[in-house]
Design a protein around this nucleic acid. Structure first.
Length: 923
RNA sequence: GCGCAUGUGGUGAAAUUGGUAGACACGUCAGACUUAGGAUCUGAUGCCGCGAGGUGUGGGGGUUCGAGUCCCUCCAUGCGCACCA
């Protein structure tokens, strides 16, 4: 009886489906465990062997937890809205819904091949109206909410209206600190003001508070293509496709006020188990900095120039000011004799794309002719304009301290601006020194103070004198939440007289209409603007971005068929946080931050009981491609094997890895691969054509993709699963090498032969196990349990191999040993385990078995083969009883001939004896 | 430039707490069975050396009886951020 993996795997996959083996109930006395994969965008290219890596890891962990007695939620679905499907529609005329559906079918078939334990009855698709109904619903909750900075949480907007009616907004500052209420020209209004505003005026103010709000933002507009482009579709200021010019255009956009959650997003990182690099990326993205805003009087005017600085201690080292080219003050402060130069400079800056400005290393700028006055000593400071100061960060103006800041220093040198040294010998006149530990000089009342300590002193003084305030700044901007595209969730918003009104809950879902054309609407609006029945209802024409549907999908899985709520409170209370989230690092800041924010919003509004979605995050590494090359002799259709290629002038050509065995080219397949190679000739070495190799990204273009279907077909799903894990730690990136899979496949065959022999048939028996056999089993139980628990699946696989090798050596075919081993193996290789489980006489599903418990008493050793060192160098090993007293050990060691030899007759100085570890004799 | 991560045989890697470096595999070599093998099994396999032995975890230095593991320093690779004041 052979190990016939094809029949076995097909049989069990069908059986599991028929019996609903993976159906999960929300009602269970067992403790819960939630394992989640980052759900895929179903691309047309299908899966390659890199994609399932994380899915296999999570599948192993899910099955493991289930065996350990948990009620495990392990769902899967599709992030089905997105640009590629729309692009495909434009290029091929296939409706996105159709191509997406097709892609999902392929995806599902490929996933099913690998034998995952997903509860498919909970499948979701973000493009499904019954799903995006709730995306729209949550959007409306955010639209109807504001962030109360005093209670530090989201609250219903009606609370804010009540506050305004009672006391105006004096206690609840407008989040955007540049916004002024147009009617009164101030940021602060009274209850009486509020009562006097029209509905439009009131709504405009409320929009400034809403967590989902509408404003104006810049997009990349390409006139020639008549469309809005994403950042990565713009290269060097022109469109990636076609090379048409792209300009910045202000368009009405929706945003999420994620900046209000900046502090809580930072604080939450301390309570979750993410990798340090992941936390760091998010922390950098949020970019919190502490400092002060300081106002400088502009000489001879009533204007105030406000700068943001993190180094107020350097206030006496300010030699010039720099303001962004977009700064409002430019018009009023520029002196007549500098007007022309300033205008020319601003024109120049405007002509350049964001990308060009970022890439530019050249120093540029222009003097305005105006001077600011240092608030402490009245010193006149020239005000310059330069594009290295960004309008969007801080106040769009900086105080430049050349001796302490690299860019300021370069700027000063370039324009010959005299440099004041406030840090004495720490500044060498050639390069800026950003130290915080120098003692201040040339700094008036701060002289002699260490900079680090001076910061607080200056801020206090500034606040005392009323010339500035302590200020915290964030790099993070509010998240743009609209796309001028078709294939996304429609906004449940109606515009009447310039006011955005939410649709009522009963009108949801607002379904995406069918269109024949995906051309953009007028003035950069989305395709929905072309549909008369849509515009006639005054509906919003933008759609939501890709991350909308993925910001709460982990909640919907808990209660996927609920028609009255996005997720019942009972379900979310039961499942709570995702205990284990597995996915790639590419979503480090985008998806993870947005979904964390939505979770916090839903928590604040009382819809769920936890405010961090993911308890633990594991980032799987990328599987890289291992490319193969053939070497064609220049100008000929002749190919030379790797070892001989240096004798010729050759071109390296990528060859499909699937027609190469290891590094040996299958010449017949190669000839068939391309018609041009049909007549190719080959120069071989030792009768073989050897290919060159290189590790690159796995990509169709490089002919190094390997389809899991092919691997599964050849070796089976169990082999594939175990080999993916055997490759190395999940978190690590590594190249795929199909060749190595044989070792894992051999292991499964060896396991099979412990039960059934090709010649003898059944060899397993019901004899009583020996202590040696029990020791092998229990060592394995312990190791597998530990390794699986800490996601060390590669060492887990090798522990199985060691176990089977040991059992073969012991000629052990005993059910008493083999049966528990099958349970251990189930998470890794579910099909073969289930098959053998039934063959040894069980009738229930192996996943319902109890995980074997390690019995330490089988593992106790009475003696150990100690490594014995002399002066730290290993010289021999001696078998010594573990309970031998130190004196006894020393006597045995010193008596040993090998040790005596190495001691060369010298007396021992001391003997280090670590019980159960080693002995070291020092002479 | 800044930050983070990683450097171990021909290859993927292991060594969980400072205690026998290279487990487990791939590959390679030798052998067995065989009409045959890209099947299966056995053995060998870090490097130098006939051997005794020496040497070895990116380089250099340090702590320690003992360092892949801890500290300092330099180098290389990967990822992230990048005029963020």
């Amino acid at each position: 009886m052979e190990y016939n993996f094809r029949d076995i795997e097909k049989k069990w996959q069908e059986q599991w489906q028929a019996s609903g083996a993976y159906k999960v109930s929300n009602d269970s006395p067992k403790p819960k465990f939630y394992v989640l994969d980052m759900f895929p965008y179903p691309s047309g290219a299908g899966l390659h062997v890199g994609h399932p890596l994380g899915y296999i890891a999570s599948d192993i962990y899910s099955r493991f937890k289930r065996l350990k007695g948990f009620n495990v939620l392990h769902p899967m679905g599709y992030d089905a809205f997105g640009l590629p499907a729309e692009q495909y529609a434009i290029d091929h005329g296939v409706h996105p819904a159709v191509s997406t559906d097709q892609n999902i079918k392929t995806f599902r078939r490929q996933l099913d091949n690998i034998g995952f334990c997903y509860d498919w009855s909970r499948e979701i698709r973000t493009s499904d109206p019954s799903y995006y109904k709730w995306t729209q619903w949550i959007f409306l909750q955010l639209f109807k909410s504001w962030y109360n900075r005093r209670t530090k949480k989201a609250e219903h907007i009606t609370n804010l209206v009540k506050i305004f009616e009672k006391e105006g907004n004096a206690g609840n500052e407008i989040p955007n600190d540049k916004f002024q209420v147009p009617k009164i020209g101030k940021r602060v209004f009274t209850a009486a003001d509020w009562a006097g505003f029209t509905e439009k005026e009131q709504q405009d103010i409320l929009m400034e508070y809403r967590l989902a709000y509408c404003g104006y933002g810049e997009v990349n507009w390409c006139e020639a293509l008549g469309t809005v482009l994403a950042n990565d579709e713009v290269v060097n200021g022109v469109s990636e496709r076609g090379g048409h010019p792209v300009v910045k255009k202000k368009l009405r956009q929706w945003y999420l006020r994620i900046t209000e959650y900046a502090d809580r997003l930072l604080e939450g990182l301390e309570r979750v188990d993410f990798s340090d690099s992941m936390k760091e990326m998010q922390t950098n993205w949020i970019g919190k900095s502490y400092g002060a805003e300081i106002s400088f009087k502009v000489k001879g005017t009533s204007d105030l120039l406000t700068v943001y600085t993190t180094r107020p201690d350097t206030i006496f080292g300010v030699d010039f000011m720099v303001i962004a080219p977009e700064h409002d003050l430019i018009q009023s402060i520029t002196t007549p004799e500098h007007k022309q130069a300033v205008e020319d400079y601003i024109t120049y800056v405007k002509s350049r794309s964001e990308r060009e400005r970022m890439a530019e290393k050249k120093i540029s700028g222009v003097f305005t002719g105006a001077y600011a006055l240092n608030p402490f000593n009245g010193r006149e400071i020239p005000i310059w304009i330069s594009e290295y100061v960004l309008a969007g960060y801080g106040t769009g103006a900086i105080m430049a301290v050349p001796c302490g800041d690299e860019r300021d220093h370069k700027f000063a040198q370039h324009f010959n601006i005299p440099i004041t040294n406030i840090i004495g010998e720490h500044y060498d006149g050639k390069e800026a020194n950003a130290t915080k530990d120098a003692k201040l000089e040339n700094s008036d009342f701060l002289n002699g103070m260490v900079m680090r300590n001076a910061m607080e002193v200056v801020i206090n003084k500034i606040e005392e004198l009323g010339i500035g305030v302590r200020k915290v700044n964030y790099k993070m901007r509010d998240a743009a939440f609209s796309r001028q595209r078709y294939w996304g969730e429609p906004f449940p918003i109606v515009w009447k007289n310039g006011i955005a009104y939410p649709l009522s809950e009963s009108e949801l879902p607002l379904e995406l209409p069918h269109v024949e054309s995906y051309k953009p609407g007028p003035e950069g609006e989305g395709p929905l603007a072309n549909i008369a029945e849509w515009t006639s209802r005054d509906l919003e024409t933008n759609t939501m971005p890709g991350y909308a549907g993925s910001s709460y999908y982990f909640l919907r899985y808990m209660d996927p068929h609920n028609a009255t709520e996005f997720c019942s409170r009972k379900a979310s209370d039961y499942w709570g946080q995702v205990d284990l989230y597995i996915g790639g690092t590419e979503h480090a800041v985008g998806h993870l931050l947005y979904s964390r924010m939505w979770t916090k919003g839903l928590y604040d509004l009382g819809f769920i009981a936890h405010d961090e979605p993911y308890k633990k995050l594991v980032n799987q590494g990328m599987i890289q491609g291992s490319s193969r090359f053939v070497y064609r002799i220049h100008g000929e259709n002749k190919f030379v094997s790797l070892g001989l290629k240096d004798q010729y002038s050759t071109d390296a050509i990528h060859v499909d890895v699937n027609i190469v065995d290891g590094v040996e080219l299958d010449i017949e397949e190669f000839k068939k691969w391309r018609t041009e190679y049909e007549t190719a000739e080959f120069i071989l070495e030792e009768g073989k054509y050897i290919c060159g190799t290189e590790v690159e990204k796995m990509s169709k273009r490089l002919y190094n993709t390997v389809n899991p279907d092919d691997v599964v077909n050849k070796y089976g799903a169990d082999t594939f699963r175990m080999y993916e894990m055997f490759l190395g730690p999940v978190e690590q990136s590594k190249p795929w090498e199909t060749k190595g899979i044989e070792g894992v496949h051999r292991f499964l065959k060896k396991l099979w032969r412990l039960f059934y022999d090709e010649l003898k048939g059944k060899v397993w028996n019901e004899e009583k196990a020996s202590p040696a056999e029990l020791k092998v089993l229990h060592k394995t139980i312990k190791k597998i349990e530990e390794d699986t628990e800490r996601f060390s699946f590669n060492t887990g696989v090798s522990a199985f191999m060691v176990c089977v090798n040991d059992l073969i050596d012991l000629k052990c075919h005993k059910k008493e040993i083999l049966e528990p081993l099958l349970i251990l193996l189930t998470p890794y290789a579910p099909h073969i385990s289930e098959e053998l489980w039934h063959l040894v006489g069980n009738t229930s599903c192996i996943l319902d078995a109890a995980y074997p418990r390690v019995n330490e008493s089988y593992l106790v050793e009475s003696s150990k083969e100690y490594p014995i060192s002399v002066n730290g160098k290993l010289r021999t090993t001696i078998e010594i009883a573990l309970d031998a007293p130190q004196g006894e050990v020393e006597r045995i060691v010193l008596d040993n001939e090998v040790i005596k030899k190495w001691m060369e007759g010298k007396p021992h100085k001391k003997i280090i004896y670590v019980k159960g570890k080693m002995v070291n004799v020092v002479v």
